[in-house]
Amino acid sequence: MTNHAAPSCNRIVLYSKKPEDTVRFYADLFGYRAITKDGDRIIELQPPNGGLILLLHPASKGQKAGQSLIKLVFDVKDVGLFQQKLIAQGHAIGPVHEADGYQFANFRDPSGNPVSISSRAFASG
């Protein structure tokens, strides 16, 4: 990868079957502010003084609450380029998905934990 800063992990996806309760929990206890966009299933929770951003995503029927329902999200400007770098290094990674003004691709770490690369942090609007 040329002329790109190393990706940083500034967001975690939390899967939730009770998003309203989860928003209230983090807002009331830790001062997080909920941000939503029309047509986006993700509720972004921003901390009051910087720090880790929480992305609440609806949990699927097969996901069990309380059992590692998180995904590490690494910010990259060019998801496709980074995806190609991972493929060249022999990593299995899913396709690049288009979301609300940004892209992302999913894969797993060696222990099977879900990881994502995403340009959401660089999306305008």
Rank of each mutant, 00 (worst) to 15 (best):
P95K: 10
G50I: 01
I43Q: 05
R41N: 13
K18E: 15
G80R: 13
F25G: 00
P19M: 02
G101P: 06
P95Y: 07
K85F: 14
G80H: 12
N10H: 06
D38P: 15
L69D: 15
N106F: 03
V73M: 12
M1W: 13
T2S: 14
Q63K: 02
Y26L: 08
P110H: 05
G66K: 00
K77Y: 07
A105N: 01
S68M: 11
V96G: 01
F122L: 02
V73T: 08
Q89K: 15
G62I: 12
I87S: 05
F122S: 02
S16D: 02
P58A: 03
H4M: 09
S124C: 09
S119W: 03
S8V: 13
M1A: 14
T22V: 05
V96Q: 04
H91L: 08
H97F: 09
I42M: 09
G80N: 13
A6E: 13
N106E: 06
V115H: 04
R108Q: 14
K37S: 10
D21V: 10
Y15Q: 07
Q89N: 13
I42C: 07
D100R: 15
F74S: 07
P95V: 10
Y15P: 04
D100F: 12
I87D: 02
H4L: 13
V115S: 09
A27F: 04
A6T: 09
L72R: 07
G125S: 11
P114G: 05
Q84G: 09
D78R: 06
Y32K: 00
D78C: 07
A5K: 14
P110A: 06
A5V: 08
I87F: 05
V76R: 07
L29M: 11
H91P: 02
S8M: 14
D75K: 02
Y102H: 11
D40I: 06
K61H: 03
S60A: 11
A59T: 01
I12W: 03
L14A: 02
N113R: 11
L29D: 04
D100G: 10
F30P: 00
K77T: 06
Y32S: 00
E98I: 09
Y32A: 01
Y26W: 08
A123C: 10
S60D: 12
K64C: 06
A27I: 06
S60Q: 11
A105R: 02
Y102N: 07
H57D: 07
L72Y: 12
G125V: 11
V79G: 08
H4K: 14
D40E: 13
P7K: 05
Y15D: 03
F122Q: 05
A99W: 10
I70K: 08
L56E: 03
R33F: 01
S118K: 09
R33K: 10
V79S: 03
A99R: 13
N106Q: 07
G62N: 13
Q84F: 06
D78Q: 09
A6W: 08
N10L: 01
L81Q: 14
K85R: 15
G51D: 04
V13M: 02
T2H: 14
I42D: 03
Q83M: 13
D21Q: 12
I12L: 11
I53W: 00
A6V: 15
G112S: 05
A123Y: 09
Q89W: 13
T22D: 09
K71M: 15
T36L: 03
D38A: 15
I70W: 11
G39W: 10
P95M: 10
T22C: 06
A5T: 12
A121K: 13
I42K: 04
N106G: 08
K71P: 04
L29K: 07
